[in-house]
Amino acid sequence: MVDVAAAPRAPVTPRRRRDWTPELLSLPALVAILAVMGFPLLYLGWMSLHRWSLVGFDPPRFVGLANFAHLVQDERFVEALGRTFWFTALGLASNLPLGLGIALLMHERFPGRSLCRALLILPMVATPAAMGLVWVIMLDPTLGIVRYLLGAVGIDHPPLWLSDPDLVVPTLVAVDAWMWTPMVALICIAGLAALPPEPFEAALVDGASALQRFRYLTLPMMLPTLMVAAMLRVMDLLKLIDIVYVMTGGGPGHLSETINLYNYLAALSYDKIGYGSAIALVLFAIVIACTLVLIRLRRPAS
């Protein structure tokens, strides 16, 4: 008779312990991320609730949400906010079509194509602060090469570019576009290379014109790629600061001041640490919100 209780037990194995190896390997990185990113962000939230000044002897004073409430009354902030969206809209409107255009061109076979593609990376890796200054020289209203080139095609009285209240933002967008349109182009080149050839072959057989193929095949199939490029550009355009700082300092007046620049000035030049923290949180929230909207657009609800 077999005793049920004495039935052979499962082979004895130690209870499988949780494997902590991955946690141990990523621990140093995690500690570093918490130290330079996690904790500072929490501290930023704390500071945004205070009137906080580094100069002088006043200790930080808790003011609740007063800093955030003050934002809506701060004309300079509201204007910088609107202007930043204007920068972003102009940036997208120029970068995406130009980038796709360059990509379509570089997608075709021609002698020296790979060298051209390699050279495309140069504007986006060059030190922005240094190249911003080079552009200041090129755009100089009296001696700049741009004035000369425009004169050569018959435009004798070009605008003042960076000193012109109406043109300063478009001019800065153009310099930003010079740096980053090639990135959009490279992303689109990769996207174009990944498109399946069959629909295009079928369209050719059916006698579709180049324009029709672009309108009904390339463009819709490239939309996901363009959305990725748009997402990257939006993240960076909303945070634009380097070239604005070195090229105009936000001027003339405050007419080219972006949120990020105003944020830097408010917190670290005007010593309103608490108020600056509030702006930084709002800017962060805006970037997150805009990115989420774009992610949402990428996957349309079906």
Partner: peptide, 27 residues
């Protein structure tokens, strides 16, 4: 080991404006 969540952290780091870290780090 494919721990998820890192993607979110990387994306957040990509979106965060540098100034959001700089103000607290400066202090």
């Amino acid at each position: 080991w494919r721990r998820t969540g890192i993607g979110v952290v990387l994306l957040l780091a990509r979106m965060a404006p540098g100034i959001a870290f700089l103000i607290p780090l400066f202090v």
